[in-house]
């Protein structure tokens, strides 16, 4: 809904396109470790961006997104390992499973708000892990082995492509009638309904859109890693990670979740190689400090710290203390 200066916005688009081009060229540097790290960071950024749609825009803190991820991974794994179908068919299955499940789950739980919604999706995530662990088609709790492709650069470009698609979608969302309806739901659901927003439909659609990107990321991951089991892909810790990254970067913004995912991926990578044992503790501290001093994320910080200076942090501590 912002008009913006056309020259500045053009400059911004060019800068973003340059960043994407640079990222796309990264596999040609020939550093295998870097490419591996890149795949993981890009997939995490896609997950954070997917969570951003339901959590950041519609304001529903989903713990069900790790289920969409798991379903996506299993969609590809079942298609390729059990039926010897090509990867793209597996991706279609991943998309179908994730989106269909989000639709059903959404109709059931999106009438709950706040903590109730979070807890309910959390419970469902646990139930899904148990169900998949007992499905022979999904390989039970042993898991499934996929054919080995061994082309890391390809997975890297796929992950980058998906992230760009997810981010362009959120960019459109932030400027569309649909997106404004979602923000209205987040800001005051009863007010939105009385003003004509079909809140149930919008929430379910947002959940399905969120699931689409999450499931496709799971599908890419499955083929890339070539072996999946229920505990590995229906991982609640992954859901927590998406939330932390999106919230750290700025939920309800277009680029925030991506920035958050990149920054936290780098920090956690450095900590993991340098100071193994205390790495997770440091990670935790980074998050606590971030939440206290910049609760609205990096994107908000970047936009406001220049005028407010150090007062930005002081005001945040004041405004959000208990």
């Amino acid at each position: 809904m912002r008009a913006g200066n056309p020259a500045r916005s053009a400059a911004r688009w060019i800068a973003l396109a340059a960043v994407v081009a640079l990222l796309a060229a990264l596999p040609w540097c020939g550093n295998a470790v870097l490419v591996q790290f890149g795949i993981s960071a890009l997939l995490l950024a896609t997950l954070a961006q997917g969570w951003n749609i339901i959590g950041g825009y519609a304001g529903y803190p989903s713990f069900g997104n790790s289920v969409f991820y798991g379903l996506g991974a299993y969609g590809v794994a079942i298609a390729m390992a059990q039926y010897q179908l090509p990867f793209w068919v597996g991706m279609l299955l991943a998309l179908g499973l994730g989106v269909a499940f989000a639709g059903l789950l959404g109709l059931a739980v999106l009438r709950l708000r706040g903590h109730y919604f979070a807890i309910c999706t959390l419970g469902l995530a646990l139930v899904m892990t148990a169900i998949v662990s007992n499905l022979p088609l999904a390989g039970g709790n042993i898991g499934l082995v996929l054919p080995l492709l061994g082309n890391a650069a390809l997975f890297y470009e796929l992950a980058l492509g998906l992230l760009v698609l997810a981010t362009l979608t959120v960019f459109w969302l932030a400027r569309s009638r649909f997106g404004l309806g979602l923000i209205a739901i987040r800001e005051n659901e009863e007010g939105a309904a009385v003003m004509g927003v079909n809140t149930t439909l919008y929430k379910v659609l947002a959940f399905m859109l969120s699931a689409a990107f999450t499931a496709l990321a799971g599908g890419i991951y499955a083929y890339y890693i070539t072996y999946i089991d229920p505990a590995g892909v229906f991982d609640l810790a992954l859901n927590v990670k998406m939330i932390i990254m999106a919230v750290f970067g700025g939920p309800g913004s277009v680029l925030g979740p991506v920035l958050g995912a990149f920054i936290l991926s780098v920090i956690s990578e450095i900590l993991a190689t340098k100071v193994t044992s205390v790495a997770s503790m440091f990670f935790g501290i980074v998050i606590v400090v971030a939440v206290v001093f910049m609760p609205r994320g990096i994107s908000h910080l970047v936009a406001h710290v220049r005028q407010a200076g150090w007062r930005y942090f002081v005001d945040n501590v004041r405004a959000h203390r208990l």
Partner: peptide
């Protein structure tokens, strides 16, 4: 009152225009 606190005043009102009578202005 139930405004959308995080939105601008214009966006608050635009929601009514976009979704109101007859489904609103697209």
């Amino acid at each position: 009152m139930k405004p959308f606190p995080g939105m601008s005043v214009l966006e608050n009102v635009a929601v009514g225009a976009l979704f109101g009578a007859n489904g609103g202005e697209r």
